[in-house]
Simulated assay, not measured.
Amino acid sequence: MKNSIIILVLLFSIISCQKTETRYTQQSPEIDSFKKSIEAYEKADWATMKSFYADSAKIEHNVTKDKAVSVDKLIEISKEDATLFSNIDFIDSESEYEMVVTDDGETWVNFWGDWKGTLKATGEEYILPCAITAQFVNGKIVREVGFWNTAKIALDLQKLSAASTVVDSTTTR
């Protein structure tokens, strides 16, 4: 009986001392990398931003997987946005990050935050809630999926374009 108790205590001690794999965290090298990639985006530091992505990374911002773009196309789009907006920023107090390891062993960093930008043409400030998730392999982003609603901005740009067309047609007469 005494030996059984000792064996059980030893077995329990060995099992409880084994390190378990972290499947969820809010602090990791991948989260730090993702934060730095967002900071580079905010500063329009495209080379630094690109350094966090694998060359073959697929970016799915407001599109389905079959319409994913390369990191070079992401940067091209971001540069176009930077010509339309000033003060592009993610509001730090509204930003949350987490890292998860899936049952299949995939590492993903999830981000929720509010993007803020001021339209240069009107001075109007927009705040868009965003959800972005990035899959990491060997410390690099290989896939990024993001969702946010740009309808208000699109409508306002359409109104600006229509107003500009009216002005152009009246001045060319």
Rank of each mutant, 00 (worst) to 15 (best):
L74G: 01
S169Q: 11
W115Y: 13
V142K: 07
V9Q: 04
E98V: 01
E80A: 00
K140L: 15
K43P: 03
L157N: 13
A151Q: 11
K35S: 13
S13I: 12
Y24E: 12
G113I: 15
S16A: 14
F136Q: 01
I132H: 10
T171W: 09
F111A: 09
E30M: 14
F34T: 00
L8K: 03
K79G: 02
T48E: 13
S70E: 02
K116D: 05
D55R: 02
A154C: 02
G105A: 06
E76T: 07
F52H: 14
K65M: 04
A154S: 09
E98A: 10
D156M: 06
C130E: 12
K140V: 12
A57R: 02
S4T: 13
P29S: 14
S28H: 13
E76N: 01
D32I: 03
D114G: 02
V166P: 05
T48P: 08
Y126P: 02
T150D: 09
E80V: 00
A154N: 07
L160W: 04
K2C: 04
K2D: 14
V101A: 00
L10G: 07
T171H: 11
S33F: 09
W112Q: 05
Q27P: 08
A57Y: 10
W148C: 12
A54C: 10
V69L: 11
S33V: 06
N149R: 08
T118M: 08
S4W: 09
Q158M: 07
A163V: 03
T20Y: 07
